[in-house]
């Protein structure tokens, strides 16, 4: 009896198995690398060796790739990341009032009161301050991303970095590094700039009160955690499975969904061996010219989406 949760994010694909009492028994963290289908197949190959299809009683998906994933694995719950993250956090601690979630492409703030999401916000048109930007800077400085936060903690002083725009932040960093500032200080400056940007942009006008959870891939960065605590003036809590929270939430939502429906729609781990091809074409049926995505498994179409009218996905109104 396990609940499967899959979070297909922009940077990583996270998969968890929860037992009956919603404890994490298995977690997989793989880089998406722009190939969500292959990554899911890969991870299923790993799971297949340990578990049996029948053991999975519910499956849920979330993340920006949840659509494609739901067709692929047969999901009982397909939910957005915000709800998934909130559900997972509430499962750990009912008292959580603020969730700071920074992922690969998105940063979010979720405000909860008495166990209910009452407000949320996401970054708008700018992706500055998200995980992929930190990734890129770590790569540029040839520092493993895992150690990036430690560098920030070692800093003796801070160098101010402009955090409003990722492109300008990078130029600013390069200019300061060319002037001879220490790498540690620049990295600390970057963390502070990102936190400043987050609080002033995503969290603008939101009341951040304790208890604060910091989750998403970026929560691994100790420098970011310290910068948040420094700016907020109180402790920020990073849950044990901080980078799996979306997947955990999806699994919990799935467990609730199967209670209402009968049985799971889970298609089994065997899709790992299937030949899955996703192709896209531009529909010329009307001036909307939708980009339709077609998902084929061993030559049989298992799903179409991306069309606005439902001509191909065939689900709603034409």
């Amino acid at each position: 009896m396990y609940y499967l949760g899959v979070d297909v994010g922009s940077v990583s694909t996270d998969i968890v198995l929860l037992d009956k009492s919603l404890n994490v028994v298995e977690e997989l963290y793989l880089k998406t690398k722009g190939r969500p289908i292959q990554v899911i197949q890969e991870s299923f190959k790993i799971l297949k060796s340990k578990y049996d299809d029948k053991q999975i009683t519910a499956s849920g998906v979330t993340g920006s790739g949840r659509n494609i994933a739901s067709f692929l694995i047969g999901a009982d719950a397909v939910k957005n990341e915000i709800t998934a993250h909130a559900v997972a956090a509430l499962n750990i601690d009912k008292e959580v009032s603020t969730i700071i979630e920074i992922g690969g492409q998105d940063s979010k703030i979720i405000i909860l009161r008495d166990g209910i999401v009452i407000d949320f916000a996401m970054n708008t048109v700018c992706a500055a301050g998200t995980g992929s930007f930190l990734d890129r800077q770590a790569e540029r400085l040839e520092i493993p991303i895992e150690e990036f936060g430690d560098y920030a903690l070692r800093a003796k002083s801070t160098v101010r970095i402009a955090g409003r725009c990722a492109v300008f932040a990078e130029s600013d960093m390069i200019h300061k590094q060319q002037l001879g500032y220490k790498q540690e200080d620049i990295i600390k400056g970057l963390c502070e700039a990102l936190v400043r940007n987050y609080l002033n942009n995503v969290a603008k006008g939101k009341e951040i009160i304790q208890k604060v959870f910091f989750q998403g891939g970026v929560a691994a960065n100790k420098g970011m955690k310290a910068a948040f605590e420094n700016a907020l003036g109180f402790e920020v809590c990073v849950p044990a499975h901080y980078n799996m929270m979306g997947a955990i939430g999806a699994a919990i939502l799935a467990s609730e969904a199967v209670k209402k429906d009968e049985g799971t729609k889970f298609r089994g781990f065997n899709i790992a061996q299937s030949n899955i091809i996703a192709s896209s074409f531009e529909c010329d049926g009307c001036p909307n010219r939708c980009e339709v995505i077609k998902l084929e498994e061993n030559g049989i179409i298992i799903g179409c989406f991306g069309d606005r009218c439902g001509k191909h996905s065939g689900k709603i109104a034409v």
Binding site: S64, G65, N67, K79, N80, E81, I82, T83, Q105, D106, I116, V117, I118, D119, F120, M122
Partner: peptide
């Protein structure tokens, strides 16, 4: 549309849970 839909769905969820 992925990010856009996420926001709309989350907003609807929020209203429903309220």
């Amino acid at each position: 549309e992925a990010g856009y839909i996420t926001r709309i769905e989350a907003f609807i969820d929020l209203l429903e849970r309220r």
